[in-house]
Design a protein around this nucleic acid. Sequence first.
DNA 1: GGTCTAATTCTAGCGCCGCTAGATTTTATG
DNA 2: CATAAAATCTAGCGGCGCTAGAATTAGACC
Lengths: 202, 202
Amino acid sequence: MSIAERKERQRAERYELILAAARELAEAEGWDAVTTRRLADLINYSQPVLYSHFKGKAEIMAAVATRGFEELAARLEAETVKAAGAGGVLRNVCAAYVDFARSHAVVYEAMFVLPTNIKFASDDTPPALRAAFAALVAALGPDRREPVFLAEVLWGALHGLVVLMQSGRIPASGAEARLEVLVEKFSDKAQVSGPLEPHKPA
Amino acid sequence: MSIAERKERQRAERYELILAAARELAEAEGWDAVTTRRLADLINYSQPVLYSHFKGKAEIMAAVATRGFEELAARLEAETVKAAGAGGVLRNVCAAYVDFARSHAVVYEAMFVLPTNIKFASDDTPPALRAAFAALVAALGPDRREPVFLAEVLWGALHGLVVLMQSGRIPASGAEARLEVLVEKFSDKAQVSGPLEPHKPA
DNA sequence: GGTCTAATTCTAGCGCCGCTAGATTTTATG
DNA sequence: CATAAAATCTAGCGGCGCTAGAATTAGACC
């Protein structure tokens, strides 16, 4: 391996080290604890070295978010192909979304809660974010009127539940039942079936 | 007026001055710009004086949020009595919620987005927050199964739309049409009517 | 009106933050 | 081995939330 290749590999490794450090520190102590001084300590370099990889702290968080979009997209896409054609696709995709948010709470915050320089709904939107959204659209099933629009409303409803529960503003207990209500309201059957069965919060 | 009364009045006035300064600075430049130094400058006292009214910056924001709960509750309650019994109550209350969030964006952030020490869904919850939530419950109409639970899901859906639009993650255009979709899904008629009319995003 | 005490307010500073200029060290090249 | 380039570090800037103790002001009492 050439010297240039070795240097590039080491640089890429350090980039990953920074992202891993940011994510782990955020998971352990929250994003407020993730500072450039502490990241530098964790990777055993001085602060300015971070700035040779990222334009600033916001870009570190954006990189963590982008990894999150990739993981979320993979997760949702897996659910759409797992039960293709079956009525449970919407439920599974929605459940996967909520489960992702629950199990990757700080990554989810970086993705969809904290201020970001990532562009949404534009040409500069990360492909993985588009893919994740496309999986939501696909989960609604074929033959839906205005599927992209409806997927935006569904996304809002899922996101709202997730963030209100995760910030302690509504009880986390009852999450599955609330999800069930949402899924039924967005299911293509919602428009032709009779009165719903009652739901009991946990 | 006694000296003690005058002192108490001046103290209360300064408390209101601090809240007004915080809100106005947040509205002008965002919560990141609201610092204890700048608030002190705006009220023409030194920083430590803020701490004679509030335990810390978080409590200033909580006080702004509490005022917001009061305004929101008043707004939503006004909508529930305005068209009592008519089918448009849910639509009006939801529209009032979204309009409040749009026109009080930074207060809304303090209320429902930023980290807070305010207790939700507990004995310590501010009465105005309970009242605002009660107005959502009432808007769903009588004879709904699990109305509190359903109101939580509705709140999540409204909140999600609001924050995704206001943070630029979904387009702000189309807000009214998305609200229409949500209202229809949560309307008590949603369970007995036929296929919905198609919706066109703006 | 003067003095003393209590209340109020201010100054100065702590430890930390994101970020950068220029110094220093290390590495690669000839 | 010397030199230049690259990489990394030190030191510092301006700012943050917050507080201890100094200084000032106000009120009570004689």
